[in-house]
Amino acid sequence: MARFDGRSILVTGAGSGIGRAAAVAFAAEGGQVIVADRSDAGEAVAAAIADAGGIARAIRIDAGDEGDVQRAMALADSAFGGLDIVFANAGISGGMANIFDTDVALIGEVLRVNLIGPFLAIKHGAPRIAARGGGAIVLTASVAGLRSGAGSPAYSASKAGVINLAAVAAQQLSGSNVRVNALCPGLTETGMTRPVFDFARDAGKGDRLGRLNPLRRGAQPEELARVALFLASDEASYVNGQAIVVDGGLSSSHPVTRQDYGKTAV
């Protein structure tokens, strides 16, 4: 398949996890990929793409910094003549503290990266995409943005904002032929969640990972990347303003262990 032949694609948080899997997959299907990450891991991903015969350029950015996002967009312009697709995937977890133990500065940083980052991707990416005749923006949200029980207060609030941002952006881009959707992963083995996976496996409890969803397992990044590519492709030409959940069925009930106020969950 070559769904992205000749298309210019920016992927943020592309140095690992879902972003890396998506960048590699976009390139394998003919895309010209800007591999953006806050670490130098993006350079290794771009090199791997080139070694496989694909086209990629790496850039080190902070996805929540407006100047950095503009630099990434400018690289797409200079290297590939414009921009057709953005996968705004970069994010941070913010830990697992409850509301009362969470520092305000931490919430601010989580919102800056997880919510302002996608906002900036839309603000600076959508006009470029529209100028090329249309395309797609995919934002990484989370099942934690749907309801409680799947993430910390800071992370959950940021991802709820991403889901709403996709809907608002889709409406405000009416007539532009630019589609905006949110991808909502469940438990996925990425750089962010690897400590959880490693801890469970080291304790001999790897089989309990993802046990609350009907498939009874966590996801691999490639499983999420495939859905991101679908949303970015012409196959999803009539999908717009939606939150697409990929969680093994977890959110069909979202079971949780509840914590009483002032007590520790057991």
Rank of each mutant, 00 (worst) to 15 (best):
P221C: 04
I244Q: 00
L115N: 12
A58W: 05
A50H: 09
L120Y: 07
V246K: 11
A150H: 09
Q259D: 02
F80I: 11
G161S: 07
A58N: 14
R201I: 09
A105F: 08
Q70C: 08
A14L: 10
S93D: 10
N181W: 11
P153K: 15
D51R: 00
Y238M: 04
I122G: 05
T190G: 07
R71Y: 09
L139E: 13
V256F: 01
V11D: 10
G125E: 03
E66P: 06
A22W: 09
S39E: 10
G191C: 11
H124M: 06
L139S: 11
A97S: 04
I116C: 10
D198N: 04
I34P: 15
A160Q: 07
L229E: 12
S174N: 04
V266A: 04
V33A: 15
R60H: 11
A243S: 13
A160P: 03
Q171M: 09
R147I: 07
A225L: 02
K205G: 03
A200V: 13
Q70E: 04
F4L: 01
V239G: 14
D207P: 12
G161Q: 12
Q172R: 02
E189L: 08
K123C: 10
A121Y: 06
V69P: 00
T12R: 14
V245G: 07
G249P: 06
L215R: 09
L250G: 07
G108K: 10
G149R: 02
L224M: 05
I9Y: 03
V168E: 02
V227F: 04
S78Y: 09
F26T: 04
N213E: 03
T257C: 13
G186Y: 10
Q259R: 06
I122L: 09
A21T: 00
T12C: 15
G149M: 13
K205C: 03
D5I: 03
A97E: 02
C184P: 02
A25T: 02
R132D: 08
N98K: 06
V104D: 05
G125P: 12
Q172W: 13
